[in-house]
């Protein structure tokens, strides 16, 4: 398949994925906006007022970047896992499998859908955040690059979950029992410098910590961890997940008999 035809195939998957989550915006875009508003009202305004400052910033301003990135993580993951599993469940993944579209274009296409949802919902949640927090932008390039890389990483993770999932229960187990704890313990609501040394070291094993800190740096210019180290960790995870996704799709795991 020529490069121009591959580009058309990629655009087709992207448009299909984009329209899918836009068409069901009441399930995909609205709920995170409501949830984030509740976080801001409860943790930001009601409780946050009593906590005072964190790293020299108002508590609500400190947690805002983490809450936005948490939305990007959950939405990009949810998009690919639901879409890929849905395609398997309804068997329309076969439309792609019988076509000459290369495996990597299939992965890029689904991943781009997850990235698009992560960015759009992340943007919507940022608008909501502005009503509660004083959001200044310290470095826009870092903000955007971290959003795109984080959404890429979790879109790939979502595809892997979708490949392995056999039932609808299987697509909620990872988000509930792995993704949510890692996200909440990734420094959204606190600086890891507040933790005892042992737990600080343990936190460093959590990849989400690096994303949240780098993203927070993009907004308010502070981070617990070296910025370039964070980029390195994120890129390594993306490379590993991409290689594994490619292996699964090429082997037809869960797709071909």
């Amino acid at each position: 398949m020529s490069a121009s035809k591959q580009w058309i195939a990629f655009k087709t998957i992207f448009i299909k994925e984009f329209l899918r989550f836009i068409r069901i915006w009441k399930q995909t875009i609205l709920p995170p906006m409501v949830t984030t508003s509740l976080y801001f009202i409860i943790f930001g305004n009601l409780i946050g007022g009593r906590i005072g400052e964190m790293e020299g910033y108002r508590y609500v301003d400190f947690i805002a970047p983490g809450l936005i990135l948490m939305t990007v993580i959950t939405q990009s993951y949810a998009n690919t896992v639901a879409s890929f599993f849905g395609a398997k469940f309804q068997r329309h993944i076969e439309e792609l499998m019988v076509s000459p579209t290369p495996d990597y274009i299939i992965i890029f296409g689904y991943t781009s859908g997850g990235i698009a949802r992560g960015i759009i919902v992340g943007f919507a949640v940022t608008i909501v955040s502005m009503f509660f927090a004083d959001l200044g932008i310290h470095n826009f390039a870092i903000l955007m690059s971290i959003v795109v890389l984080t959404a890429t990483l979790f879109s790939l993770a979502g595809i892997i979950n979708g490949v392995y999932a056999k039932t609808f229960d299987d697509i909620s187990i990872i988000p509930t029992f792995i993704l949510a704890p890692l996200t909440y313990l990734g420094g959204i609501f606190y600086s890891i410098s507040l933790l005892p040394e042992f737990w600080q070291d343990m936190s460093l094993a959590n990849p989400i910590l690096y994303m949240i800190n780098a993203f927070r740096y993009g907004f308010i210019g502070i981070t617990d961890i070296d910025l370039w180290f964070s980029y390195g960790i994120i890129l390594i995870f993306i490379a590993l997940l991409y290689a594994y996704t490619m292996y699964l799709v090429k082997a037809g795991h869960g797709i071909r008999s």
Binding site: K5, A9, T12, K16, Q90, H92, E95, T101
Partner: peptide, 29 residues
């Protein structure tokens, strides 16, 4: 190929199903 079982997205308009399928073969929209 026309498979034995239905294998399309039941929530998509049929014109879109066809146009997407063409796209997977590199045909412009």
């Amino acid at each position: 190929v026309l498979p034995q079982e239905f294998n399309f997205n039941i929530w998509e308009p049929i014109e879109e199903i066809l146009v997407n399928q063409a796209g997977y073969y590199g045909i412009e929209r």
